[in-house]
Simulated scan of single mutants.
Amino acid sequence: MSRSAIALRKVRVEDAADLLALWEEFSRRPADGRDAVEELAQSVRSVLASEDARIVVAEHSGAFAGAVHLSLQTMGPFSTEKAVQISHLRVAPDHRRRGVGRALVEAAVAWAEDLGVAHVGAVSVNSRAGNRFLARLGLAPVAVMRVGPTAQIRAKIPVELPTVVRPVASRPMPPNRQLGQVLAARRSARRQQDPV
């Protein structure tokens, strides 16, 4: 199928069910029925009302083929320079390798050009193929964003700070001495495991 069969359009509220199926991997909670569709429909309404965000939908040969969320943001917390941020870039499995992803990225670049914004950034899922795709288009890694459940992170952080403060050595230990201590500890551990 030719690339000319790809059409881009602004998201519609009626796209919520298709978006939910497409973006299921991005959700941290189960997508269950009408409530999840209505919640996503409300998010679509918010994007449609915003001047700083948009969702672009790709259709391939008339079928829903993919989507991307775009937002206008500052490049960082200490910068006033703006960038168009790509997130939730996803192509439906049946429509991959047909230019749909590239067309969605082109939509981000076109919006950045319309706004006079000099940079486009992308949040990528932890996918080797997705990261390679973005790299081929000239997007270089700047940071890694990690996400985890609050309760799980809380369980790994002590509630109280330690009350004992260890003195800091006045001068660092020479690297060869540190290595010697590590090797001695390993030999000792080996001897305890295999007494000969």
Rank of each mutant, 00 (worst) to 15 (best):
V100E: 00
V37C: 05
T74W: 10
R28I: 07
V168A: 06
V182P: 01
M1H: 14
D114G: 09
L40V: 06
P149V: 01
L72Q: 09
A189W: 08
F26M: 06
R187S: 05
K82E: 08
V182Y: 09
V44A: 03
A108Q: 04
P30E: 14
A185F: 06
Q42V: 05
V125N: 09
L70T: 06
L161P: 00
E24Y: 03
R90H: 07
V56A: 04
R187K: 07
T80D: 13
E14T: 14
E160S: 13
L19S: 08
D32S: 11
P30H: 08
E160R: 15
A36D: 07
S71K: 11
R154Q: 14
T163D: 09
V109Q: 15
V123Y: 13
D94R: 14
V196P: 00
F78D: 05
W23N: 04
D114L: 13
R166S: 02
S46G: 08
Q85H: 10
V196A: 07
P162Y: 02
V182R: 14
V105E: 09
R154K: 13
L20K: 05
V144E: 12
P174D: 03
L22T: 04
A110K: 14
L8E: 03
Q193A: 12
W111L: 11
R171F: 00
A169F: 01
V168L: 06
A185R: 11
L161V: 09
A103Y: 04
V125E: 13
R186M: 14
Q192T: 08
S71W: 01
V11Y: 01
S43V: 11
S50R: 10
E39D: 10
L139M: 10
T74C: 13
S50K: 08
G180N: 02
S127V: 01
I86C: 10
L20F: 00
L115R: 15
A53D: 05
V164F: 00
G121Q: 15
P174F: 00
E59V: 03
H60C: 12
G101I: 04
V109L: 14
P93M: 05
N131I: 07
S46C: 06
T80K: 12
S71Q: 12
F64R: 10
V109F: 05
F64W: 10
W111T: 06
R146P: 00
R9E: 02
M1R: 15
H69I: 01
D32E: 13
